[in-house]
Structures are given as structure tokens and as C-alpha cells.
């Protein structure tokens, strides 16, 4: 009985407080919304970057040039071996195919020589899981030692650069995220403290008539969590607006960024909501603590 009475009292008090001093709560909710939008945007951008790096790395190929005397059987064996090693897709390119490609790029090449000087080769598209420069180098080194192999070529520099780029971007993202997070905690705690300060008289009287600290705290915690959720709702709205309306416009405007469209996933929505609620909670815990000492 008492528990039900208390719970309903807490919920009513929290809602009443939102209702009674709307301005301070609007400020708190908006600052939370801004922070959460920042968080969500950072996550969307990060996943975009990941995808970009991935798509660029998808072009990284291992090309194995074979000796002129290699047999069909050797080539088939090599294809199987390469596919096993790299978990990628290996294709045999005959000298004729290679020449046709070259002719397509440089017309008139075919006419230069009667013989086809190009060797048999095997092209391996390296899957994302084996994208690391280290792993590729390993594979290249091993394949190079095989008897039928003349040379191995792979975009070592490109892979290295991509990896460096991805690392730098992740690091930058982490730093920015850390700064944003810190700012949010400070802003939220300060705003909530303002809201609680407005109600210090009420807290004083509550304590005077025998309220426990937990009893005084509970409505503020509910309030904080509610504010966080409201902020998350606004942030998600803004993010959806950005990805569904803003992005297509941007693509239309610049005309070049026709990459995969960014999306607000269900998982991201959950993360934003959870982060919002816990930020609100932490903020109100920090804010209310000072007023309970008396």
C-alpha cells in the first residue's frame, strides 16, 4: 500500500515539477537534446567513415603474376590455396584478357606487338576481415615463394594509408566524443541544480517533517530520467530530419557524395535513449546531493 502510494506520489511530484517550472526544464531538456544529437551525429558519421574505409579497401587487390610455363592445374591449385588463405575471391586472368583490358585503357596497344607479353595472373579481392596490411604482407610473402609464381603485387602503400586514416579518424572521434560527453555532464548537472535550487524550500520542509533522503531524492531522479528521455526524443527527431531530409539535399547539392545514405538504426535510437536517461539520472544525483546534507 505504502509502496504504491509512494510511487504514485513520486511520479506525480516529478510531473508536477516539470509542469510548474517549465522554463528551467526546457533549458535542461534542450541542453540534453543538443548533446545527444551530437552523440548521435558522431555515431552516424563514424559508421559512415567505417563504411567509406571499407568500400575503399574493397578495391585492394592482391595480384599474383605467374611464370609463363604454369599449367592450368597449377593455376587451379593456386586459386584454391589463395582463396583459403585470404578467404577472398580469386579469379584467373589469362594473357588475352589482360591484353583486352589494357587495350580498353590504352587503345592501339595491341597493334604494337604480335606476341602477347602479358603473363597469366590471379587477382584476389581481399575481404574486409583480411584487410590489415600485416596479414596481406604475410600472404604475399608466402605466395611469392611458390614455384609457379613470378611476382606478387598488392597495394601495400594504399592499405597502410587507409589504415592510418581510419585510425586517425577513430581517435579524433573518440577525443571529440569525450569532450562532448564531459560538457554534457557539466551542463546537465548545472541545469538540474538550478531546477533543484528553485525547490530548496520544498526540500527543507520535507526534511523538517521527517522525509528520508531517499524520499526527497526519488522525484528528482525520475525528473532527470524523464528529461533525458525527452532530450533523446528531440535528438532522434533531429537526427532523422538530418538523415532523411538533409542528406539527400546535400547529395543533390554537391552531386559527388553519392555514397551509402546514413541511417538512424534502431540500435542507435536505443543507445541515444539510454544515454539520455542515464545522463539525466547522473546529473540529478550529482545535483541533489548538495541539498540533502542539511
Amino acid at each position: 500500500m505504502s509502496l504504491v502510494a509512494k510511487t504514485s506520489y513520486f511520479a506525480r511530484t516529478a510531473l508536477e515539477s516539470l509542469w510548474r517550472s517549465p522554463f528551467i526544464h526546457v533549458v535542461a531538456v534542450l541542453s540534453l537534446a543538443v548533446a545527444l544529437t551530437g552523440f548521435g551525429a558522431a555515431r552516424v558519421v563514424a559508421s559512415q567513415l567505417d563504411r567509406l574505409v571499407e568500400s575503399l579497401s574493397g578495391e585492394v587487390e592482391l595480384t599474383v603474376y605467374l611464370k609463363a610455363d604454369s599449367s592450368d592445374e597449377t593455376r587451379a591449385q593456386l586459386v584454391t590455396a589463395l582463396e583459403q588463405r585470404t578467404h577472398g575471391k580469386a579469379t584467373i586472368v589469362s594473357p588475352e584478357q589482360a591484353l583486352a583490358r589494357l587495350e580498353a585503357q590504352v587503345p592501339g596497344v595491341r597493334a604494337l606487338s604480335k606476341d602477347n607479353p602479358l603473363p597469366w595472373s590471379i587477382e584476389v579481392a581481399v575481404p574486409p576481415s583480411a584487410r590489415q596490411a600485416q596479414a596481406l604482407r604475410e600472404v604475399a610473402r608466402k605466395v611469392e615463394q611458390l614455384e609457379a609464381v613470378e611476382a606478387v603485387d598488392f597495394g601495400e602503400a594504399a592499405v597502410d594509408r587507409l589504415e592510418g586514416l581510419a585510425f586517425a579518424l577513430r581517435l579524433a572521434g573518440l577525443v571529440v566524443f569525450g569532450l562532448v560527453f564531459l560538457t554534457v555532464v557539466v551542463v546537465v548537472a548545472a541545469t538540474l541544480q538550478l531546477a533543484i535550487y528553485a525547490r530548496r524550500e520544498e526540500i527543507e520542509i520535507q526534511k523538517l517533517v521527517g522525509a528520508t533522503n531517499r524520499f526527497v531524492r526519488a522525484p528528482f531522479l525520475i525528473e532527470g530520467a524523464l528529461q533525458g528521455l525527452l532530450g533523446a526524443l528531440i535528438a532522434l527527431g533531429l537526427l532523422l530530419l538530418a538523415t532523411h531530409v538533409g542528406w539527400p539535399r546535400l547529395v543533390a547539392l554537391l552531386g559527388v557524395l553519392d555514397a551509402v545514405a546514413p541511417a538512424v538504426t534502431l540500435r542507435l535510437a536505443g543507445e541515444v535513449a539510454a544515454l539520455g536517461a542515464s545522463l539525466g539520472l547522473v546529473g540529478s544525483v550529482l545535483a541533489v546531493r548538495r541539498f540533502l546534507r542539511a
Partner: peptide
């Protein structure tokens, strides 16, 4: 030490809510 924006009844009831009395 009354709450100016709550009714007289609410001000008195305040002390009862604290002990978890039903509404």
C-alpha cells in the same frame, strides 16, 4: 515555511506523503 504555490490542503498533506500515506 509554507509552500506559496501549493494549496493549504497540499501544504498540510505534505507531511503525510512523506510517511507514505495513500492519497
Amino acid at each position: 515555511k509554507l509552500l506559496p504555490r501549493r494549496s493549504v490542503l497540499d501544504n498540510v498533506g505534505f507531511a503525510l506523503h512523506v510517511v507514505g500515506t495513500p492519497r
